[in-house]
Simulated scan of single mutants.
Amino acid sequence: MIEAAARERQIPLLRLGNEIQVAAIDKEWAGIQATVTTPADTYRDLRVPLLGLHQAENAALAVAAVDGLRSRGWDISDGALRDGLARTRWPGRLEVIDRHPIVLVDGAHNPAGLERSLAAVRTLARGRPLVIVFGAMKDKDLQSMLAQLRALDVPVTFSAIGWHRAAAPAHLAEVFGDGAETADSASGAISWARERAGANGIVLVCGSLYLVGEAIAVSRASKRAAVASRR
């Protein structure tokens, strides 16, 4: 459909894997290093601090977009392009919000997004305990996402979310099967997960941007309380 519309309107169409090529190295906690080739140029050793090898594809599309702007007269230097990628932040996408243990939040809320996030976390968690906090809206593809969590074979707790469309933790646990825990708040779920993970472990909070928002709020409140207690 998109290709047909582009042809009809005589608009150039650049496709990842065709006109746009990317090769990347996963630097794990340091992000990725990518080489991107577009019809205009090849950009080597681009640094992106986002976690997960899949972010190389997003970086490649951003580079191609810059090429498109340049072709229309925008003055964007290679230095600005590299600096922009190196400074990229994406709150709620494999974002570290706490340490000891590391707490990651990721807003992937569909099977494809969750698959990529879990692949990245498996790499990051090699040799370390991993615990999942999951919550989702009840209109999502819960069966597929919960099947991915089962395949990880790690401790999982299902969290309530303060939103009317949220799936009940008890329902998620029932669909998931034996072995899951439930919590009536993000705070309770994260507290349980941190204890299970231990200081050297990793906690991943995922499944919903609403849950991610609550997890970030819990983390900020905890940090404010810690600062206040030291005064």
Rank of each mutant, 00 (worst) to 15 (best):
I11Q: 11
Y210Q: 05
W29F: 10
K138M: 14
Q21V: 07
G213N: 09
R165G: 05
F134M: 03
A120W: 07
V156P: 00
A170S: 09
D26W: 03
R7E: 14
L146H: 03
P49K: 14
P101K: 12
A40W: 14
R230G: 05
G177Q: 13
P111T: 02
P49A: 11
G79K: 08
A186G: 10
A147R: 13
G135S: 05
D83A: 10
G135N: 08
T88Q: 09
A64Y: 04
M145D: 12
L104V: 04
H54G: 01
I97C: 01
R231Y: 08
S191Y: 07
I190Q: 09
T123P: 04
G127A: 08
V103K: 08
L149D: 04
T38Y: 06
D98V: 00
R231L: 11
T157K: 11
V66L: 06
H171R: 11
L69E: 06
N110W: 04
D45A: 14
N58A: 06
R44M: 05
A65K: 04
V96N: 01
I11Y: 14
G73S: 02
S71C: 02
E195Y: 15
L16H: 07
I102N: 03
A221E: 15
S208L: 07
G92R: 12
A186K: 05
L114F: 04
L61C: 14
R196Q: 12
D98L: 02
L146S: 04
P155D: 01
L118S: 00
I20C: 02
R126N: 05
D184F: 13
R194F: 02
V103C: 06
A221F: 00
P12W: 15
R44S: 15
D184R: 15
Q148C: 03
A226Q: 15
A125Y: 05
A228C: 09
G79R: 10
I202V: 13
R122Y: 09
